[in-house]
Amino acid sequence: MATPEEEALRVQIADLNMALARNEPLIPLFANALQANGVIPEAVSLSAANQHNNAISRAGGLITSCMSSVKLTPSKFGVIVKVLTDVGLKESGDSLVRALIAKGGEIQETDGAQSYSGTANNEAQAVSGNGHTRDVDVSSVIKILDKVLNENQVAINDAFEGSIPDIARELSQCDIITKSVLKSPTYEAIIGNFRSGMRCTDTLLSLENYCFSFLQGLGNVGGPVNKAAKMLEKKWIEAVRKETGAEIEFKK
């Protein structure tokens, strides 16, 4: 039977891979720290440092090795969380802790001085264009995105006119709207479903991924709807930057 540590790491694999791939300069730092703490072997660390491999492949190799290590020594889970925090991926570390708690586990004391002292909370990190990180509360970002939606409701509604069924089909495939809304789609119902889903995200990464799916679905419709999606993305980025000083990006 898998341990809570294994289960927690397994459910976070995709987000961890994405976080590392999107912050490629951190991959060798993360790898070196993991090796120094006995979580991964030297060969895996060297492979992660090889820039001839793409970022997703390098990140995937690290996380796979972490899984093997945690399976043998559950206490290594705490080391992984601490290393994530130390290299600037605190959001990912906190997500791991939340996942562990959800699986009925708890952070164990790690070997030596490498114990985890952070707390899981609703803080996330945004990476700015110059590579620096800034703490930003996810709920604050959601409020900003919601505000931009309200401010541009007329323009978005106009762009959606005549394309509601197509929009609903695309967003249903992205799991943005419910089956009932797909059957009887309206602008209000579609945006209402999107807002509800947005408020259920608890990390910046999951929020960005969710909004990316929404924007991509709109973009697939083409025409004015695609232009509305691009406008919304631009205004979201500008608003978050202006009000929090943080940089967000919508991509997978």
Rank of each mutant, 00 (worst) to 15 (best):
H52I: 03
H52M: 07
N53G: 10
A55P: 00
A55L: 01
A55H: 03
A55G: 00
I56F: 12
R58M: 06
R58I: 05
R58C: 09
A59F: 00
G60V: 00
G60R: 14
L62A: 04
L62R: 04
T64F: 12
S65L: 09
C66H: 03
M67E: 09
M67Q: 11
S68R: 05
S68K: 03
S68A: 07
S68P: 00
S68Y: 03
S69E: 07
S69I: 08
S69F: 05
S69C: 07
V70R: 03
V70F: 15
K71Y: 15
T73W: 06
S75E: 15
K76V: 02
F77K: 02
G78R: 02
G78P: 07
G78C: 05
G78I: 01
V79H: 07
V79I: 15
I80A: 05
V81Y: 05
K82W: 01
K82Q: 07
K82V: 00
K82A: 08
V83P: 02
V83R: 11
T85C: 11
D86S: 04
D86Q: 09
D86T: 03
V87Q: 06
V87E: 02
G88K: 10
G88L: 12
G88W: 06
G88I: 10
K90T: 08
E91M: 14
S92H: 04
G93T: 00
L96W: 08
V97Y: 03
A99L: 02
A99M: 06
L100A: 04
I101K: 10
I101M: 05
A102E: 07
K103M: 10
K103P: 01
K103C: 11
K103A: 13
K103L: 04
G104H: 15
G104D: 14
G105R: 08
G105M: 06
G105C: 06
G105F: 02
E106M: 09
E106G: 08
E106N: 12
I107M: 12
I107R: 12
I107K: 12
I107N: 05
E109W: 03
E109Q: 12
T110G: 14
T110A: 15
D111V: 13
G112T: 00
A113D: 06
Q114M: 13
Q114I: 03
S115K: 14
Y116L: 00
Y116F: 09
Y116T: 00
Y116D: 03
Y116H: 04
S117H: 12
S117N: 14
G118R: 10
G118Y: 03
T119S: 14
T119W: 07
A120E: 09
A120F: 04
N121S: 15
N121L: 04
N121H: 15
N122T: 08
N122P: 00
N122E: 07
E123N: 11
E123I: 08
Q125D: 03
Q125F: 11
Q125E: 12
A126S: 13
A126W: 10
A126P: 05
A126L: 09
A126K: 11
A126Q: 10
V127I: 13
S128E: 13
G129S: 13
N130I: 05
G131K: 06
G131M: 05
H132M: 12
R134L: 14
R134W: 03
R134G: 07
D135L: 00
V136Y: 10
V136R: 11
D137R: 07
V138S: 02
